[in-house]
């Protein structure tokens, strides 16, 4: 690869590239969790549609059902396909000095946060996630909400050790700072 930036003291090609990092996929249970929560969402949506049609004085209820259920079916199928395909794109990696998370099927996004910039870390677990014993690791930076990193789908024990690892790293790298 040619170096685009001749004025820098170090050739960026000599730095460890993020492309060669071994990314780890997140726990397959996360796929089940996201499918269940979107199924719940569609059940609620169908309920709402039925309620609206039954309570209003539509002339032709059959048409109402056909249109609304058709639309919901279309959305749910699209949602399921995107969730399944998108799941494969959710991967993370821990390097010596930073943590990386990638996601996105159509718009792929890769976020990297150096350990010496992490403010604090917390684990989050919703009710469905609890059933499958998985967690989300949330890393806060000073860059505000838009740059906070959330890694979902981490099994209980792994999530805990990862949080401890990140906090230890943050402390070490931060201590060097001042």
């Amino acid at each position: 690869m040619t170096n685009h930036f001749e004025n820098l003291s170090i050739d960026p090609n000599e730095l460890p590239s993020l492309e060669e990092v071994n990314f780890k996929p997140i726990d397959p249970n996360y796929l089940k969790v996201s499918l269940i929560s979107s199924a719940l969402f569609f059940v609620v949506l169908i309920g709402a549609a039925i309620a609206i049609i039954e309570l209003s004085d539509f002339e032709e209820k059959m048409n109402g059902y056909l249109i609304s259920m058709g639309a919901i079916l279309l959305f749910s199928v699209a949602n399921i396909i995107l969730t399944i395909l998108g799941f494969k794109k959710k991967k993370y990696a821990l390097r010596q000095r930073d943590i990386i998370y990638t996601k996105g099927l159509i718009w792929s996004v890769r976020t990297t946060v150096p350990f010496n910039r992490i403010q604090h870390a917390e684990l989050k677990q919703g009710p469905i996630e609890r059933l499958y014993k998985i967690n989300s690791l949330k890393l806060f930076t000073a860059g505000g909400q838009s740059s906070d990193l959330v890694i979902p789908g981490l099994p209980d024990n792994e999530a805990l050790s990862m949080k401890d690892f990140v906090l230890k790293k943050t402390e070490e790298d931060g201590a060097e700072q001042s």
Partner: peptide, 23 residues
């Protein structure tokens, strides 16, 4: 270009991680 973005990414990360100054 992708290669440019990757170089920027590596360089910026390298600079953050090796800089000992307070931000």
């Amino acid at each position: 270009s992708l290669s440019e973005a990757l170089q920027l990414e590596s360089f910026i990360l390298y600079r953050i991680q090796t800089d000992k100054r307070e931000w």
